[in-house]
Each structure stands twice: as structure tokens, then as C-alpha cells.
Design a binder for these strands. Structure first.
Length: 749
DNA sequence: GTCGGCTGGCTTTTT
DNA sequence: GCCAGCCGAC
């Protein structure tokens, strides 16, 4: 380990002896290097033993990366260190202390899909009107409450909807407790309550974890911050690393405010800024700096590099989304001709819907591309089916899993039968599997056969290895047979074989730096003598499957251009980056304008996008875009105008201002946009000639109007006549809206 | 029990 | 415009 190769700020951070530190780590400033070097340094200096370190991240990928880098810095046994995600570490705590946490030893983890189906089942059972109380809304309410650390009793409802939601939350929690299942938010809340309510356990861990290090601190939610403070107690050191300018997850509960709170209450102004960037050139960094300076409430930071100015940002306004996609592909092609690697080119966009047009363009030209996002491995239905069998083998009372596979593959157990079974089980107060005894007749026989199958498999589980057990399930439950007869069964069978392989890897010792994946999620490390517990490979594999849904793309390391949302690109870097769809209403997204702080979060997102690029950055906007089956007329994103001109090179003529550019463009040129098909023009400018008379008002294309809610705008199209007439109006902030002139109260300016 | 047609919704997403 | 999820028909 060479401390000398760090820059002065990095070195200060690595070697600080302050109890509370906040490291403001800009994009590309060596954040992970600082975190891992600090851990290695603390251990090398004998300041703390590996067992005294707790390092927490948000993703499994980041946790693994950290462990790999520590191992390369120091020849130590990383097993004793608690390095993992919030959820992984909480799982570890709860497994070790399941009794004190009030959980069965075999508790299972519900992912969002499982949780939603559990909620649907609950709502159905209690005859809740799902039009008034959509399962998704209830799910959000429950998760939101838990993420703020609230139990049903802690919530004071403000309206009837909330009152009912609280009741349903309580019922849901009962159901989970009975079935021995725990959702993601519950992992954190339980672990927090365990530490809070049990002094013995709390003090044990407080004594143990002398150094707590937190990655991506700006992404923590309220509960996670509370959990960290509890664990830190009075005496332990906290080393929080984050970047408030890259906080883009407020919509899922992240609270940037935690950074400021921590700085004021703990670090007391002890901020170390890492501002030297090792990734990009100055035109890119200065653009990012200038853009983000439009935000208020920042902790403040300015990226710089000694690599020089580099290239100007290339900005292009195009006529429509298809042309934009075509241009990106053409550019990418010439970059590749110049020797850039495919995977060093990324196309980033605000929303997944944008990928279609871009994919299409890549596909037609035959350029290899890879789209990130979509279903992950452990979320596939065939995988979840087999996992449900495994869960039932592990815990027969898991009703969610029971219902998932009791009739998969079909074995003649219908909805009727299951309703009767649910009623019987509720009456007795037992799980579905146990409730079968109360039923009679043919359905009961079929159910008993199913439970018999599970029990047989459970017996085999005691002697078979995990991969063999999975094979056995696929065969005995008829899953193999079923998919052999299916249309797309071949691929599903391949995925199931992949599951067998995953189990094999999981069980093998070699999987990760001499430390198996099983150990990564395992209970207390062996040196944690205070609370030793033993768990089966099956239990650990099930935790693993829930906590790590698998990478979206890890297996496809092929040479291809990378397509993904900006959110997905956080933490990544590429030689060349395209950011597509820079239009008002799309990016910044229209929905963000109504949310508190929404525009600032969008700007942070743009900041993330810009700082992904090492060498070259392209930004593009389209004047017309197909959205929800309709052509939207758009205006350039305000973000493009927030980047100083000296850093940019416009590939298209730059129109005077954003906001009204599109309509001015259209109006000035009449129907004369060179690149567009004539058939749409006629419809578009149908009302142009004479305008539309509605009451006393005469509306014309190009006219400026004001709307009570949307503000000022300009009419860009009129369709229909009289009271029926509709106008498309481009508003300065919300983009294009189609309004009925007879209804909308417009003021002509 | 399964298939097909219809309706509604539609920003971002890790664990 | 597209996809998912739900309901109704066979």
C-alpha cells in the first residue's frame, strides 16, 4: 500500500484521526480508492482489527469491489470485516439474533414482487376495494413508513385513506410475521429495533465496530442514518463518503439532508473535499460545475483536472427522435472506425421508453449494442418458481411461496379449492400447508399430494447437495417436463440450468477471493464468538437469491455500445458519452417540476450524466418526439442553456433561447422544416390560415397565451373548429400540452 | 384452466 | 404505441 501516491486531500482523508468525517467526493475523484485505502491503512497501522470495521454500501457490486481492492492492498483475511450492503448486513444481524428479533430461524426475504403479491392476497382476503386502495399504493405506503422507521402505531393518519392504509399496514405485518417472511424495508427496521431495544446486543456491536465507513452517503434514507448512528454510539468513528451533487434517488426515500445533518451534528464542519478529477477533461468538468451551480442548498464543490481542456461538448438539435437516433448511430460508427472500443461508447437517456428508437437505429445498421435494465436473473418467473419450491422445503409455512407453486405446474388445484383452504387455515390460525387437514374430498387429496411432494423433497434436501436438490425439484415437480412442452421453454430451461450452476458456484469455496459467496451472506463470522449460529447452505442460498437479484448484464461482456438510463450509469465511466433527449418535459422530466426540489434533482441527474464522459460528450435534443403514440413538440432542455457557450460546439444552428425555440422555429419557417414528411405538416398546421374562433377569442398559431396552471406558452398547432377545437401549446416549463379551447381558460397575451 | 382481447397507464430503481 | 394485467369466453 502506497499512501504517497495519493493526492494531499485523499491522504488527509485516509489518515485522519477525527472521530467524525465527511468526505465530499466528487465524480471521478478516487472515492473508492480513499475508502479502501483508509480501511487498509487503519488495519495496517494496528488502529483497528479487521473485525472492528463495518463498511456499508448500497449495492452488492460496490461491496464486492471494496473487498477485492482491500485484498489487493493488504494480505489480510477480510472475512472478519463486515463489508456489505445495508440489507446484507441487517440480514446477517437478524440471522444471528433471530430469536431476539422475534423471527423464526428460517425467515425468508420477500422481494418487491413477492411483497406485492402478499399485499394483493391480503386485500382480497379482507375484501378491500382495490380501486380505492390499489395494492401498489399500499405497498408504497408500507415501505415509505418503514423507511422512516414508523410502525403502524407511530403513524397519525391525516385522512381516511391514510387511516385505512395504517390498518392495512398492521394487517400486512401480522401476515408477514405469521408466515415468517420479511420484506426489504423490514430487514432494516427489524435490525434497527433489535439494536435499539436490546442493550446487550447493541453494546456488543458498539464495542465491536470501532470504525464505521459509509459509501454513497447521499443515498441513505432516514432509517439507514438512524441505524448508523445507533451502531456508532458515542465512541466509534464514522467516515462518511458521498456527493450531494450526485443525489438522484430521492424518489425512493434517499435524503440528501442526512449529509448536512451529519456535517452539523457530528462532523462539525470537518469536511474533506476531493475535487481533483482523474476522469475527464476541463471542458467537461467546467460544464458540469457551471450546470450544478444553478442548484441551491449545496455543500459546495468544484471539480478540476490537470489533464487539460480536452474537446468541446458537441451539441446537436435534430428534427425528431428518429433522426436523433440515426445521428447517434452514424457518430458511433465513425468513432468505432477511429478505433474507439464499442463498450467505451455509452448512450444515456432519461427514461427507458427512449431506448426503443435508439435500439432500432443500432439494429438496422447492425452495430452491436447492449441495453441495460429489464428483468434480472433471479426475477425471472421460472427461477422464482423453483426458488418458491426451495423456500417451501425450507419453511412450509411460507404461504406466498405455497400459492405460487401449489398449482405450478398445473395439477388441478383451482381458485375455488384455494379459497376454501385459505378460509380453513384462517379459522384454525395456521399456514395453508397445515390447513389442508381440515379439508375433505378430491381437492384435499390433490393438496395432500402436493404437500407430500414437498415433504419428500425436504427429506432429500438433507442428503443432496444444493445443485442436486434443484435438479431433483425440477424433475419431481414436473417443471422440466412442463417447460419442455412450452414454446419459449428452451430458454427457461437454460436459465434453470444456470440456476443449478449458480448454486454450484455458491457452494464452492473458490468463488470469491478464496471466500465463498455463501460466506459473504453468512451469519456471524466465526470469530464473532458472542453469538454463534449455524445455518444450512439452502438458507444462505435463499438469502443470497433475494438480496442479490443478479446483474442485468454481467454475463454479456461482449463488445457492444452501451445503452442505459442515466440512473443506471451512475458510478460508471466511458470514453464517449451521448446524452439523448435533452428536451423540456423529458429532461428535466415534466413530473419533476411539481415535486419538491424536483428540478434540482433533475439537474443533479444531468450532472451525473455529464461526468460519465472521459474524452468526449455529445448532447442532443429532438424537436419532435413520439411519446405515448403521439407526436410531441418539444423545446430544448434548459440544461443545455445552463452550460456556458465557451465549452460547447453546436453542430446544428443554435436557436436564440430555450422555451420557445421550437415554436419560433416552426412558425418562422412555416411548414418548411427541411427534413420532415409532408403528410404530417398538413395536419400540424391545419389551423394556421385563419385561426380558430372560440367565443370572443381568436386563436392563431404562433400566438402567445397564458394558462392559470401551466403559465405562459405559445400555440404551435390548432386542430378542429369552434368549441371542439384543440390547441397544442408549448409552455415554457411544462413542455407541450394539448388543450381543448372550449375548456381551458386561456388568456391571449 | 387456458387463451385471447380489452383497458389503462406510462420517470428514474437497489435491496 | 406498447405492454401488463385483468376479465370473460370456451
Amino acid at each position: 500500500m502506497d499512501i504517497q501516491q495519493l493526492n494531499p486531500e485523499q491522504r488527509t482523508a485516509v489518515m485522519t484521526d477525527a472521530q467524525y468525517v465527511l468526505v465530499l467526493a466528487g465524480a471521478g475523484s478516487g472515492k473508492t480508492k480513499v475508502l479502501t485505502t483508509r480501511m487498509a491503512w487503519l488495519m495496517e497501522q494496528g488502529i483497528v482489527s479487521p473485525g472492528g470495521i463495518l463498511a456499508v454500501t448500497f449495492t452488492n457490486k460496490a461491496a464486492k469491489e471494496m473487498l477485492t481492492r482491500i485484498s489487493s492492498l493488504l494480505p489480510i483475511n477480510t472475512r472478519a470485516m463486515w463489508v456489505g450492503t445495508f440489507h446484507g448486513l441487517c440480514n446477517r444481524l437478524l440471522r444471528a439474533h433471530y430469536r431476539d428479533a422475534g423471527l423464526p430461524q428460517s425467515f425468508q426475504i420477500l422481494d418487491i414482487q413477492d411483497q406485492l403479491s402478499a399485499i394483493k392476497r391480503l386485500l382480497k382476503f379482507h375484501n378491500v376495494d382495490t380501486d380505492k386502495y390499489p395494492p401498489k399504493d399500499i405497498q408504497n405506503f408500507i415501505n415509505g413508513s418503514k423507511e422512516r422507521g414508523l410502525r403502524p402505531d407511530d403513524i397519525i393518519p391525516h385522512d381516511p385513506f391514510e387511516a385505512r392504509s395504517v390498518e392495512l399496514y398492521a394487517l400486512y405485518q401480522n401476515q408477514c410475521d405469521k408466515e415468517g417472511v420479511v420484506d426489504f424495508a423490514e430487514l432494516l427496521l427489524r435490525a434497527f429495533e433489535l439494536l435499539k431495544n436490546n442493550a446487550l446486543i447493541r453494546e456488543h456491536y458498539q464495542r465491536r465496530f470501532k470504525h464505521i465507513l459509509i459509501d454513497e452517503f447521499q443515498d441513505t434514507n432516514d432509517l439507514q442514518y438512524k441505524w448508523l448512528r445507533l451502531l456508532a454510539g458515542q465512541h466509534n468513528a464514522m467516515f462518511a463518503v458521498g456527493d450531494d451533487d450526485q443525489s438522484i434517488y430521492a424518489f425512493r426515500g434517499a435524503n440528501v439532508g442526512n449529509m448536512r445533518a451529519y456535517e452539523q451534528d457530528y462532523a462539525k464542519g470537518n469536511i474533506i473535499r476531493l475535487e481533483q478529477n482523474y476522469r475527464s477533461y476541463n471542458h467537461i468538468l467546467d460544464s458540469a460545475n457551471a450546470l450544478i451551480s444553478h442548484n441551491t442548498e449545496r455543500l459546495g464543490k468544484n471539480l478540476w483536472t490537470d489533464r487539460g481542456d480536452g474537446e468541446l461538448l458537441r451539441i446537436n438539435e435534430l428534427s425528431d427522435d428518429r433522426t436523433e437516433a440515426q445521428w447517434i448511430v452514424d457518430e458511433a460508427k465513425s468513432l468505432i472506425r477511429d478505433g474507439i472500443d464499442y463498450q467505451q461508447i455509452a448512450v444515456l437517456y432519461r427514461s427507458n421508453a427512449q431506448s426503443r428508437a435508439i435500439e432500432h437505429a443500432f439494429f438496422s445498421v447492425g452495430l452491436p449494442y447492449r441495453v441495460y435494465g429489464g428483468l434480472r436473473f433471479f426475477e425471472r418467473q421460472e427461477i422464482k418458481h423453483v426458488l418458491a419450491y426451495l423456500r417451501l422445503i425450507h419453511n412450509l409455512d411460507d404461504d406466498t411461496s405455497f400459492l405460487r407453486v401449489v398449482n405450478f405446474p398445473a395439477r388441478g388445484i383451482g381458485a375455488r379449492t384455494l379459497e376454501n383452504l385459505t378460509d380453513a387455515a384462517t379459522q384454525i390460525g395456521c399456514s395453508l400447508a397445515l390447513g389442508i387437514g381440515a379439508l375433505k374430498g378430491a381437492p384435499a387429496t390433490k393438496l395432500a399430494e402436493f404437500v407430500g411432494l414437498i415433504k419428500r423433497l425436504s427429506d432429500m434436501a438433507k442428503i443432496l447437495s444444493l445443485p442436486d436438490l434443484i435438479q431433483q425439484i425440477m424433475h419431481d415437480a414436473g417443471i422440466e417436463q412442463f417447460y419442455k412442452g412450452e414454446r419459449d421453454g428452451e430458454e427457461r430451461l437454460e436459465n434453470l440450468q444456470e440456476l443449478v450452476n449458480a448454486a454450484q458456484v455458491f457452494c464452492s469455496e473458490e468463488s470469491f477471493e478464496g471466500r465463498s459467496a455463501a460466506e459473504l451472506v453468512s451469519l456471524s463470522a466465526s470469530e464473532d464468538q458472542a453469538f454463534p449460529e449455524q445455518t444450512s447452505a439452502l438458507a444462505m442460498f435463499l438469502s443470497h437469491a433475494s438480496l442479490e437479484a443478479g446483474d442485468n448484464q454481467a454475463k454479456h461482456g461482449e463488445n457492444a455500445v452501451q445503452l442505459m438510463t442515466i440512473h443506471a450509469a451512475k458510478g460508471l465511466e466511458f470514453d464517449v458519452v451521448f446524452v439523448a433527449g435533452l428536451e423540456q418535459g423529458l429532461f428535466p422530466h415534466r413530473n419533476s417540476l411539481v415535486a419538491d426540489d424536483g428540478l434540482e434533482e433533475e439537474r443533479r441527474l444531468m450532472y451525473v450524466a455529464i461526468t460519465r464522459a472521459r474524452e468526449r460528450l455529445y448532447l442532443s435534443a429532438a424537436h419532435e418526439r413520439m411519446l405515448y403514440g403521439q407526436t410531441e413538440y418539444t423545446t430544448r432542455s434548459q440544461f443545455l442553456d445552463e452550460i456556458p457557450e465557451e465549452h460547447t460546439k453546436w453542430l446544428s444552428p443554435k436557436l436564440k433561447e430555450s422555451g420557445f425555440t421550437r415554436s419560433e422555429f416552426a412558425f418562422r419557417q412555416g411548414a418548411g422544416r427541411a427534413t420532415n414528411e409532408p403528410k404530417r405538416q398538413s395536419a400540424m398546421f391545419a389551423g394556421m390560415s385563419g385561426g380558430v374562433q372560440v367565443g370572443a377569442q381568436l386563436f392563431k398559431v404562433g400566438q402567445r397565451v397564458a394558462h392559470a396552471k401551466f403559465g405562459e406558452g405559445m400555440i404551435i398547432n390548432l386542430v378542429g373548429q369552434g368549441a371542439e377545437a384543440q390547441a397544442q401549446i408549448v409552455f415554457q416549463n411544462v413542455g407541450v400540452k394539448t388543450l381543448a379551447l372550449g375548456v381551458a381558460k386561456l388568456e391571449i397575451l
